[in-house]
Design a protein around this nucleic acid. Sequence first.
DNA 1: CACGAAACGAAAGCTGAGCTTACGTCATGC
DNA 2: GCATGACGTAAGCTCAGCTTTCGTTTCGTG
Lengths: 287, 287
Amino acid sequence: MRWRDLPSLSSLRAFDATARSGSFAEAGRQLNVTHAAVTQAVRGLEAELAVQLVRRAGRTVVLTEAGERLARALDEGFGTVAAGIAALREAEARRVVRVTTTTYIAETYVMPRLPDFWAKHPGVEVAMSPSPEKIDLARDGFDMAIRALTDGWTERPDEEIRPLCRSPVVAICAPSLANSGLHPQDMPWVIGNENHWELAEVGGTGLDTSRLKLVDIGSPHLELQACRQGLGAGTATEIICRADLEAGRLVRLPLTGLPVITYAIVLPRGPRRAAVEAFAGWLQTIF
Amino acid sequence: MRWRDLPSLSSLRAFDATARSGSFAEAGRQLNVTHAAVTQAVRGLEAELAVQLVRRAGRTVVLTEAGERLARALDEGFGTVAAGIAALREAEARRVVRVTTTTYIAETYVMPRLPDFWAKHPGVEVAMSPSPEKIDLARDGFDMAIRALTDGWTERPDEEIRPLCRSPVVAICAPSLANSGLHPQDMPWVIGNENHWELAEVGGTGLDTSRLKLVDIGSPHLELQACRQGLGAGTATEIICRADLEAGRLVRLPLTGLPVITYAIVLPRGPRRAAVEAFAGWLQTIF
DNA sequence: CACGAAACGAAAGCTGAGCTTACGTCATGC
DNA sequence: GCATGACGTAAGCTCAGCTTTCGTTTCGTG
């Protein structure tokens, strides 16, 4: 493609619109400019190509033979371009909002509320899927992530962070276990054997983690349920177990020194689809 | 076509060039702008479509999946446009220069010199054809006319006049006829019966045209030849019969009151092909 | 592995292509 | 005729698009 050899695209556009409508004035209306602008553009194109393209015919304008030929080419070419743009927009509008998550909160707090989002934004599909922490959102085609940020998180330059809420980590257990008279140091703890991060949290309270009896449930999804049933103590952010605490299904253990977690949305910087923005905005309303 | 819905064509062009070359810098070179201009245009397009189209990959740029799809559409669309322009230019460059003429001078003076033009402008075809005086050049596809203008000619607004030369009408006859002792009033005149215009010219000298003996040769092309052979007196512009006068084949009759003719090129205003301009320029050099 | 070449990124400011405004002329319909 | 709505032209404005400038990143190389 020899772009330097082409006349200005705006003059081609003006001629195309003129050819379609058979009138400078109508073309101007379609292009959102005055008839004078169209006239000048077409005259300029004629001068550049050194070909007469249009001829006055009374109150209207007719194309010359050369103009007809050019108009056919432009019609087809610009039509293809317009169709491509339209197809892209269509595909983007339909495309599902892909959310990656590594946090329990997404599954326990966000997913149960999804019907509310669908009610407010019909036609927007949302897919939530787990994926490793250190993922490149843009490269892997995710529209956003829901993450739990520890303090001291630094924002990457190509990502935008929107905090959703800060929630303290609390130690909890079933009322029956709390009433057993056991000191937290002697309780069983529902913590996966490999979960060094949660173990370190508990260590922060002063307990000797090396002497704790750990109950490995295997799946994080079932740990809260295990705590409710009295299988052991555990940790969770307050927002997750708030309902259980209020209902008396769980009680707090009087431990201090646990961290505070910030839940946040991570969005890749750059252009953002309306559907993505809508979902991000909705997320911020439910916290 | 909904032109208002399309992004700016220049940003589409910038993206297309980027997609072809895989580099902002190279695209800028092709478009004759800096890399920064291309970057801005592509970012603007991404923002307008709310789609990421490109992604940095080290020192170069790669298209996203959406970018690839758009690039295909643009490639095809702009390719069609470019092909249309190229075809138009090609056709215009090849097209013959059509010259219409109503004057004897074109046939006697210009056509014999055409080989000189062809030598100087190889590849430019010229077609000279007679047609009525009152023709609309643009409408009938003529590139120029060669006309004889009487004094007091007024230029039409859509035509440009380029004078070639002014030449007085002279009355001439063969030396034998001049030496016969006959007064011009009594000579036979080589003038077509229907040629009221030439008869009026002669009337301007004071002769009584109603009493003239007219010799109707039928074809204007042969009238000068008839004069040379002594069949009668006649009129012609000086430039046409100059060679005959100098060679003594014809002599001037001492009549006054004949008009002066301006030979000129008539060109339709507006865009003009290079070949047409070349022929017009050449015509001005040979007078 | 330091260094230079060649990209891309971002922001500030300039400029001319493209537009509006303003006023004519001309064709058409009532 | 006269109102209406097209096109033609020219003068001048304005902002989209460009250049400039400087910084960062990536790669190839001795």
